[in-house]
Amino acid sequence: MKRVLMLLANGVEPLEMAAFTDVLGWANLLGDQPLELVNAGLRPRIETTFGLSLNPRHLLNELDLNSFDALALPGGFEPAGFYEEALSEPFLATIRHFVEAGKTAASVCVSSVCLGAAGVLQGRNATTYHQEGGKRKNQLVETGAVFVDRPVVVDGRIITSSGPGTATEVAFMLLEQLTSAENAAHVRKKMRFATPDREWYETPQVP
């Protein structure tokens, strides 16, 4: 069985989190091999970006990271306190553990900034949420990443994306890396998710 750790910071965005829970949950039920998504945080109760409260099933320090095959990182908002935990050493050390072990790390929206801060994006293609003059792109580039203005960027085992609307695509790409393209396509069809056209994948955030 493949196991995925979804690491939740206080201030996480619910939609980005739900993409992983639903896509991997459906894959476990209807896909061609079992999957387990385990969620964990640094505190027993989290306030999400838009005021939804939740209780992570585990605290990060309770888990054996070696027992997981991939890392899922939903993003969040600065006003909700996301970066206080998402840029903390426990988060960054977890990211380094997965990348150094050659395992997939899938991030949505601004959580790619965490990958950069962890030091794992040097010389690698990546993206993040970006607006004209946006500071997130600059943060990413300052960590040595090669910024690519596309909705989703895959560089080996590292998946980054540009916003909440990309979250399900990141989850399907994670599923594909863990299992197969055929299995991901099967689950996509069962969930009634359309496949974006080529133009979607090639459209930059800032023209």
Rank of each mutant, 00 (worst) to 15 (best):
N138M: 12
V146K: 13
V153P: 00
K137W: 02
T203V: 13
E182Q: 14
V120C: 00
V110D: 04
F91M: 08
C114H: 09
H130F: 12
E89K: 14
L121V: 04
P79R: 14
T195P: 00
F68E: 02
A80E: 13
A106T: 05
S107V: 08
T128N: 08
V99N: 07
A105S: 10
T179C: 10
V108R: 02
S107D: 07
V99M: 02
P164G: 15
E169I: 09
F172C: 10
R136I: 03
R150I: 05
S111F: 00
E100M: 08
E85Y: 01
S161V: 06
L71Q: 07
A117N: 12
E176T: 15
F98R: 11
P151L: 08
T203D: 12
K189N: 15
V146T: 10
T168H: 10
H130K: 05
G76A: 14
L92D: 01
N183V: 07
G163P: 02
R150A: 08
E132S: 06
R192N: 11
V153H: 03
L87H: 14
S162H: 07
A167G: 13
H186K: 15
S67K: 15
A118M: 01
L65N: 11
N66H: 15
E199L: 10
R188Y: 13
N183M: 08
G134D: 04
Q122W: 10
F147Q: 05
M191K: 13
H186L: 15
P79C: 14
V154F: 06
G144A: 06
F98S: 06
V154G: 02
L65W: 11
R188E: 12
D155W: 05
V113C: 07
L115S: 03
L60Y: 11
A118G: 05
A105R: 01
G81Y: 14
E84R: 13
T168Y: 11
I95M: 03
F68R: 13
L140P: 00
D149Q: 06
P164T: 14
P196S: 05
